[in-house]
Simulated assay, not measured.
Amino acid sequence: MGWVTERRRVIRIRDGAVSTRPDTLVAEEPLEIRLGGKPLAITMRTPGDDFALAAGFLVSEGVLASAGELANIVYCAGATGEGGSNSYNVVDVRLAEGVPVPDITLERNVYTTSSCGLCGKASLDAVRTTTRWPLDTSPETPVRIEPATLSALPDRLRSAQRVFERTGGLHAAALFTTDGELLDIREDVGRHNAVDKIVGRALQQGQLPLSSCVLMVSGRASFELVQKAVMAGIPVLAAVSAPSSLAVDLAVETGLTLVGFLRGASMNVYAGEHRLALSAAASTD
Rank of each mutant, 00 (worst) to 15 (best):
residue 185 I to L: 15
residue 169 G to H: 10
residue 43 T to R: 10
residue 100 P to G: 03
residue 171 H to F: 12
residue 144 R to P: 04
residue 86 N to G: 09
residue 70 L to G: 02
residue 214 V to D: 02
residue 40 L to N: 00
residue 67 A to G: 03
residue 119 C to H: 14
residue 44 M to G: 08
residue 180 G to T: 06
residue 123 S to D: 14
residue 81 G to I: 00
residue 94 R to V: 00
residue 143 V to H: 04
residue 144 R to V: 10
residue 83 G to E: 01
residue 193 N to P: 01
residue 210 L to Q: 00
residue 39 P to G: 09
residue 176 F to V: 00
residue 137 T to W: 14
residue 71 A to I: 03
residue 74 V to L: 08
residue 157 L to S: 05
residue 247 A to E: 04
residue 219 G to A: 07
residue 20 T to Q: 15
residue 77 A to W: 14
residue 269 V to I: 12
residue 66 S to N: 04
residue 74 V to M: 06
residue 75 Y to Q: 05
residue 154 P to A: 04
residue 81 G to P: 01
residue 152 A to H: 09
residue 213 C to F: 06
residue 195 V to P: 00
residue 266 S to D: 12
residue 121 K to E: 14
residue 90 V to E: 07
residue 277 A to H: 15
residue 80 T to N: 10
residue 246 L to V: 13
residue 202 A to P: 03
residue 185 I to N: 02
residue 37 G to S: 09
residue 82 E to V: 11
residue 259 V to C: 04
residue 161 Q to G: 06
residue 270 Y to E: 07
residue 32 E to L: 14
residue 83 G to F: 01
residue 204 Q to H: 09
residue 49 D to H: 07
residue 160 A to K: 07
residue 67 A to N: 04
residue 282 A to Y: 12
residue 162 R to F: 11
residue 234 I to K: 01
residue 219 G to S: 08
residue 121 K to N: 12
residue 145 I to A: 05
residue 143 V to D: 03
residue 214 V to P: 00
residue 262 L to H: 02
residue 110 V to K: 12
residue 217 V to I: 11
residue 277 A to C: 12
residue 104 I to T: 04
residue 141 T to L: 07
residue 231 M to C: 07
residue 129 T to Q: 11
residue 77 A to V: 14
residue 97 E to V: 10
residue 278 L to I: 10
residue 124 L to C: 08
residue 110 V to F: 13
residue 26 V to E: 10
residue 267 M to T: 08
residue 256 L to D: 05
residue 138 S to F: 15
residue 62 G to A: 02
residue 106 L to N: 15
residue 75 Y to V: 02
residue 83 G to V: 00
residue 147 P to S: 06
residue 228 K to R: 13
residue 39 P to Y: 06
residue 35 L to T: 03
residue 23 D to W: 13
residue 1 M to F: 15
residue 77 A to R: 13
residue 170 L to H: 09
residue 206 G to S: 08
residue 126 A to N: 11
residue 187 E to H: 07
residue 262 L to M: 08
residue 193 N to K: 03
residue 190 G to A: 08
residue 208 L to H: 02
residue 264 G to D: 06
residue 207 Q to H: 10
residue 118 L to S: 11
residue 44 M to E: 13
residue 107 E to Q: 13
residue 266 S to W: 12
residue 137 T to Q: 15
residue 22 P to R: 07
residue 274 H to T: 08
residue 101 V to N: 13
residue 238 A to Q: 07
residue 251 A to E: 04
residue 220 R to Y: 15
residue 222 S to W: 06
residue 48 G to Q: 06
residue 178 T to L: 08
residue 164 F to P: 03
residue 285 D to Q: 12
residue 171 H to T: 04
residue 146 E to T: 15
residue 25 L to H: 13
residue 165 E to L: 12
residue 76 C to R: 14
residue 254 T to I: 15
residue 230 V to R: 02
residue 102 P to C: 02
residue 168 G to I: 07
residue 221 A to L: 09
residue 216 M to T: 03
residue 77 A to I: 12
residue 119 C to F: 14
residue 4 V to E: 11
residue 102 P to Y: 01
residue 219 G to N: 05
residue 150 L to D: 03
residue 168 G to A: 08
residue 48 G to Y: 05
residue 17 A to P: 04
residue 95 L to W: 10
residue 28 E to R: 14
residue 76 C to E: 15
residue 223 F to D: 08
